[in-house]
């Protein structure tokens, strides 16, 4: 992987302040601007972060940043250090070296600025809860025994935004994979965060639902000018929607740049098509 360019060699042209994220991306591609404008306001700043656990170096001197409104795909094979890095971003883990800043603040003081969509397998699936309670819990920071009318209205409005208004009073245990992730996306958006972390959000969702969910996430990120990190193994499905790719392997940052540029590299292409029909046909040949 040493041949993967980390980019940033070209002089960075300033990006117009008025640009939407999509326009910024096209603008960056035109200028071959591999990395975001260093002068842009940064929502997330990962600065020379190393994380050791049990005497093992899991994340090794990783630096990148995400400006306002950028949709970034964080990818890499199993054991690359993605989840550990995410924990540091969410303030659940203190980096051994380096620092993480969210809107200029350490993560533990910027929790209200982060929305998190977890993997479907991570929570108690048989917990007696309805969507309205899950969304209200994100606002209160604790589980509600009773939901007030204004909290209910807020939950309804954010569910409507993700096309899940009818799910308001449904028990979580009875929802399909796609419906569940819509509710969790609403939960992440209800606090009006600056950064949304999407941790393998389409895992456990059927194929048709995946594309729809992904489209929804990108659309909201762009319309609300949210910075978003999507962690996924299925790079093929997101490579052309993400504005930039951050690629980790064995804890090291091996690529950070535009999808078209990085996907030309062999190991990233293998990751993009892993488990797809393309990969099966190629293996058969």
């Amino acid at each position: 992987m040493s041949d993967v360019p980390v980019g940033g060699g070209e002089p960075q042209a300033p990006t117009p302040a008025w640009a939407t994220s999509l326009e910024r991306r096209e603008h960056a591609q035109k200028l071959k601007q591999t990395r975001p404008d260093p002068g842009a306001p940064r929502v997330l700043d990962v600065d020379h972060v190393s994380i050791e656990r049990g005497g093992k170096l899991i994340v090794d001197d990783v630096s990148f940043f995400i400006p306002k409104g950028e949709f970034v795909c964080l990818c890499g094979p199993n054991g690359a250090g993605k989840s550990t890095l995410l924990k540091a971003v969410m303030g659940l883990l203190e980096p051994t070296r380096g620092k993480v800043r969210i809107g200029g603040e350490p993560p533990e003081r910027a929790r209200h600025k982060v929305g998190y969509v977890p993997q479907r397998k991570s929570y108690s699936m048989d917990f007696p809860a309805r969507s309205v309670e899950l969304i209200t819990a994100a606002v209160r920071g604790r589980w509600p025994a009773h939901v007030k009318p204004e909290e209910r209205e807020r939950a309804r409005a954010v569910l409507a935004k993700v096309g899940g208004e009818k799910l308001l009073d449904k028990p979580l245990a009875g929802l399909s994979g796609g419906e569940t992730q819509r509710v969790f996306l609403a939960r992440a958006l209800v606090t009006e965060p600056a950064l949304v972390i999407l941790d393998e959000p389409t895992a456990g969702v059927d194929v048709s639902g995946r594309a729809e969910l992904l489209r929804l996430m990108v659309e909201i990120s762009r319309s609300d000018e949210l910075a978003a990190i999507l962690v996924t193994h299925n790079l093929g499905a997101v490579a052309h929607t993400a504005e930039r790719i951050v690629y980790l392997e064995a804890g090291r940052l091996l690529g950070w740049g535009l999808p078209d540029e990085l996907l030309g590299q062999s190991s990233l292409t293998a990751l993009a098509f892993a488990g797809t029909d393309h990969a099966r046909h190629r293996d058969e040949e």
Binding site: R111, Y116, Y123, A137, A138, R142, W143
Partner: peptide, 20 residues
């Protein structure tokens, strides 16, 4: 502690992100 315990039992990671 009911409301914090409930959140922590539902999903320890989500609860921790919320400062529980």
């Amino acid at each position: 502690l009911w409301s914090r315990l409930a959140y922590a039992i539902f999903d320890p990671e989500l609860a921790a992100v919320s400062g529980v």
